[in-house]
Nucleic acid binder design. Structure first.
Lengths: 245, 245
DNA sequence: AAGTGGTCTAGACCACTCA
DNA sequence: GAGTGGTCTAGACCACTTG
């Protein structure tokens, strides 16, 4: 069904087969046809279904494993990743606990409002002036100790009815999964700041003490920005760590 | 020559063929047999030489491209990457100029000493008590403006005679290439600090003003630490940015 | 036109997991 | 032992670059 297009239409109009397959399979995950945590059909069955060779199907599946959509285990099968799992949900957090594992902390005191996007939100989220956003304010704590306050903006078109749900207590990655959005990449800018009186209050530190400011944009698999967040963070028994390849 | 081992010895003693190929090809780069910037033989010639199928050779070459050792270009060939190029040498720097490109800055006022490794150096570089290190102190500037001061430690065994060379004016990645070491990954811890009187002097900022402290370990392709560096950085017209996947 | 990497195929066998 | 993913093979054809 997919293969035909390779034969009939000129190449410059089409993508390589394995990329088309990736898109088709990713859509099954995004649509909820394949649920998080469940196994999907094996390589050769999928190859038969899509009328491609097993090698091409494998290339698509390997790609998706690299995109954190699937996990493949020899002898067991191929499974849809649960983005709300601890490991994956913390994927875009570079803050680590003393044990060295990425941590998100627990969410607390969530507030949500909506309004039309301001200049900053428009440039960061690549949306236009008439679009609106949800604005979420929240605080994160680790074993009761507040260490981060943050303000996030999300396009309303991508998260319809978000303000009426309780899901705001989840991070962006788990949230995206609920709305059929597959997370892709993120960029984070790190800078120095000093605590405003209010920030000092919530973080439990002295006014004007230095804090680290994390300005992050999370994108969907297709590159669309889905969240812009600025976080003010008090690192003390935690640290910020980046791995580079 | 390589393939034989697959047939004769049990699998748990050996690595997959494509990984053995990667090691063999990487060795040709590290040893200087294949020079930075030069083209290497094509896929099928290499496959013939190593007596493997073209597909297996391709898997090894693709892997090496992902490790930044090679660049493949359709219609042109496969080329050995020059690690001292601007792009690759700045690979482990998350500091970006206003244009958004990674920058290393220019090195200035380099000092080098050597001595036996202290506790911190032993743990970070995973070397033992009797091993010695080179200690390099230097300052980086961008168009004349000093923005970073740093202290680096390198195992003497990996960089013999480093103190007698002028190469210290190069960053670790270009340096490693000269010594036949292929760079792999790096980790960097980011924390807050305040400028000591001396640091304030060199960075041209007020005493006790907040600076960002970058604690980085660079590893070779095989995982061995090759440099531990602590940098004190004054971000002003620059910013620190991380991409996450 | 010749040579390169990129895609795709069809099939074999191995290593691992689990009932 | 049946079923899964992981490795490896041999070959075809396509897309791109360069002379």
């Amino acid at each position: 069904m997919l293969g035909d297009r390779m034969m009939t239409s000129p190449r410059f109009l089409t993508k390589p087969l394995y990329l088309q397959l990736r898109d088709a399979l990713a859509d099954r995950i995004a649509s909820g046809e394949w649920k998080p945590g469940s196994a999907i059909p094996n390589e050769s069955d999928l190859a038969r279904e899509f009328e491609v060779s097993a090698g091409t199907m494998r290339k698509a599946l390997d790609l998706m494993e690299g995109e954190h959509l699937l996990t493949r285990r020899q002898g067991r099968g191929t499974f849809v990743n649960d983005q709300s799992s601890d490991e994956l949900a913390a994927r875009f957090s570079n803050i680590r606990g003393s044990e060295g594992k990425r941590i998100c902390g627990q969410l607390k005191s969530t507030q949500i409002t909506s309004g039309s996007a301001n200049d900053m939100e428009r440039t960061r989220l690549r949306i236009s002036a008439q679009d609106s956003v949800y604005r979420v304010q929240r605080v994160r704590h680790d074993r009761g100790v507040v260490f981060q306050a943050e303000e996030a903006s999300l396009p309303t078109t991508l998260f319809p009815g978000l303000d009426e749900k309780k899901d705001v207590a989840h991070g962006i990655i788990a949230l995206a999964q609920d709305y059929g959005i597959l997370p892709g990449k993120a960029e984070e800018r790190v800078s120095l700041g000093e605590a405003s009186p209010q920030m000092a209050e919530t973080l439990g530190i002295a006014v004007r003490s230095p804090v680290i400011v994390l300005d992050r944009v999370v994108r969907a698999l297709d590159g669309r920005p889905i969240e812009w967040r600025v976080a003010w963070c008090n690192l003390s028994d935690k640290y910020y760590m980046v791995e580079m390849t």
